[in-house]
Computed example of a mutant assay.
Amino acid sequence: MSMDYQGNSLRDFLKNNGHVVLQRVNNYNLRSFTEKEREHIINGYSTLLGKGAFGEVYKGALDVQCLVAVKKYKDGTRKEDFAKEVIVHSQINHKNVVRLLGCCTEENTLTIVMEFICNGNLNNILHCSNANGNVPLPLDKRLDITIELAEVLSCMHSMSSPVLHGDIKPANVLLDENLVPKLSDFGIARFLSTNEVQQTRNIAGSIGYLDPLFNQTGLLTPKSDVYSFGVVLVEMITRKKVVDGNTNLIQNFTNSLKREKVVRQMFDDEIVDGKKKIKVLEDIAKLAAECLRLQDRLHPEMVGFLSLLFLHSPVNEIECQL
């Protein structure tokens, strides 16, 4: 299969449509796919992985040894939105980010091609039961996932031009064969200006994970991601959905924190085993509460939060108890 590496057409498309804070279009190392090549890769749309407001994601293959996920955008997607996603995603080179391989920019065929991550997403692992019940997810593995997610967010927020993801939730955390997390979906992500604040009138994020301060101010900061991360932490230790009918997990969690024994009752039974584990879960609950504080200035920075997570969640000590 013939591929146009770093073609002028791809560079020109991103340069003309990707009006972002930084224009580093010469740094891209992406494959440019034609519509015909895209159709060959996804083999007649035979395996649908998921779909949403943006379009659909299919499983495909570049060759026998290279499986990929192909995100096909719905007709009418703005070229500017597509180009910004490609530009931001391509700038983040981290082991816990899904690797972007290339894209198709032909008329009405906007598509990105990414590495395929075999174990689906964290939301399905946490909340979708199989015939034998929930997929086992021991505490040490949950801590590994949590710490690595904190690491990649810390990295993004510390870049020379900080990157805000804007839609942190378990559905956007993919898991490989070893349950190593890979952050995905940079459709809302953006470079932040030098003052690390951006104002937008567009709704960003997902119900239950969106920082309430955004609704009040319209301001996006790295701490918007910190709030969403706090919500994910609560899901990890309770294995409960953020919104389940009329039940609001974060509201219940916040109310339960006022009484220590009550919040213990929210912990997932699978990982409540012994006093040391309960102490770790209580420490994680306190860290989640720090992230969920409604006053923006009280949200911890992701860089500092990472060290707190290690401090309050002694992974090595936990592993010795398993």
Rank of each mutant, 00 (worst) to 15 (best):
F116S: 09
F116N: 08
F116H: 15
I117G: 02
N119W: 03
G120K: 00
G120I: 06
N124K: 13
I125P: 00
L126R: 02
H127F: 05
H127P: 02
H127L: 07
H127T: 02
H127A: 07
C128E: 15
S129C: 03
S129T: 14
N130H: 14
N130E: 09
A131V: 00
G133D: 01
V135S: 12
P136K: 13
L137Y: 10
D140W: 14
K141F: 10
I145K: 06
T146L: 15
T146N: 01
I147W: 06
I147D: 05
E148C: 01
L149K: 13
A150Y: 09
V152A: 01
L153D: 08
S154D: 08
M156I: 10
H157Y: 05
S158L: 14
M159L: 13
S160G: 10
S161G: 08
P162F: 15
H165L: 12
H165R: 06
G166L: 07
D167G: 07
D167Y: 00
I168V: 15
P170L: 10
P170N: 07
P170M: 10
A171S: 14
A171T: 05
N172W: 14
N172S: 12
N172M: 10
L174M: 08
L175G: 08
L175W: 03
E177K: 14
N178V: 03
P181V: 06
K182C: 02
S184T: 12
D185Q: 07
D185C: 07
G187A: 08
G187S: 08
G187Y: 09
I188N: 07
I188F: 12
A189K: 06
F191C: 11
F191I: 10
L192Y: 07
S193C: 11
S193E: 13
S193F: 02
E196V: 13
V197G: 02
V197A: 09
V197C: 10
Q198F: 01
Q198T: 14
Q198E: 12
T200C: 07
N202L: 12
